[in-house]
Amino acid sequence: MNWIAKIFMALLGLAFLVALLFGVACYTVYATLRWLLTGRKPQVVLVWQQFSAMRQNFKQGGFRAGPSQGFEGPRGRHSAHDDQVVDVEVREVVEDAPRLPPRKPH
């Protein structure tokens, strides 16, 4: 391979790297603005927090200790010895609630 082709390939690789870094920077700005406006954390932050919690739990022996340690669910800390099971949650259905109009056939 001659030196012109090597320079061309190096510039092509550099351009790809710059485009990749620019894309990551744009996503970071977008995710941060969305986080500030909506209050929803970016998925990357949520995954990283779960990974950190799992790593900390593993260091404390949480995986070897068995299910009696309990687990952190969507509604808080639960133990494996809970006797209460909630199958259905009740909510009121209002008859006069606004409904969508019927769909028109195409």
Rank of each mutant, 00 (worst) to 15 (best):
M1P: 13
M1T: 15
M1I: 12
N2M: 02
N2D: 12
N2Q: 11
N2T: 00
W3Y: 07
W3N: 09
I4T: 11
I4D: 08
I4F: 06
A5Y: 03
A5R: 09
A5I: 05
M9V: 14
A10T: 12
L11R: 14
L11Y: 06
L12Q: 09
G13V: 01
G13H: 02
A15S: 03
A15G: 01
F16V: 13
F16S: 09
L17E: 11
L17G: 13
L17Q: 08
L20T: 09
L20Y: 07
L20Q: 01
L20C: 09
L21K: 06
L21H: 01
V24K: 10
V24G: 13
A25Y: 00
C26Y: 11
C26T: 12
Y27M: 06
Y27V: 08
Y27Q: 10
Y27P: 00
Y27W: 12
T28E: 06
Y30C: 09
Y30D: 02
L33Q: 15
R34F: 14
W35H: 08
L37Y: 10
G39I: 01
G39T: 03
R40E: 09
R40P: 07
K41S: 12
K41L: 14
V44M: 12
V44N: 08
V45K: 05
V45C: 02
V45Q: 08
V45T: 07
L46G: 00
L46C: 03
V47S: 15
V47M: 15
W48A: 15
Q49A: 11
Q49W: 07
Q50C: 07
S52K: 15
A53Q: 14
M54E: 15
M54L: 15
R55M: 02
Q56E: 13
N57T: 15
N57E: 14
N57H: 13
F58W: 14
F58R: 12
Q60N: 14
Q60H: 08
G61N: 04
F63C: 05
F63P: 01
R64G: 14
R64S: 15
A65S: 12
G66M: 05
G66K: 00
P67T: 08
S68D: 11
G70S: 00
F71H: 13
F71M: 15
G73D: 10
G73W: 12
P74M: 11
R77G: 06
H78K: 07
H78T: 04
H78M: 13
S79Q: 07
S79L: 01
H81P: 00
H81M: 02
H81G: 02
D82L: 06
D82G: 07
D82K: 02
D82Y: 03
V85Q: 11
V86D: 02
D87G: 02
D87W: 02
D87N: 04
D87R: 10
D87K: 07
E89S: 14
V90K: 03
V90G: 04
R91S: 13
R91M: 06
E92C: 01
E92S: 03
V93K: 01
V93D: 05
V94Y: 06
E95Y: 13
E95I: 04
D96W: 03
D96T: 03
A97E: 03
P98G: 04
R99W: 08
L100V: 08
P102N: 00
R103L: 11
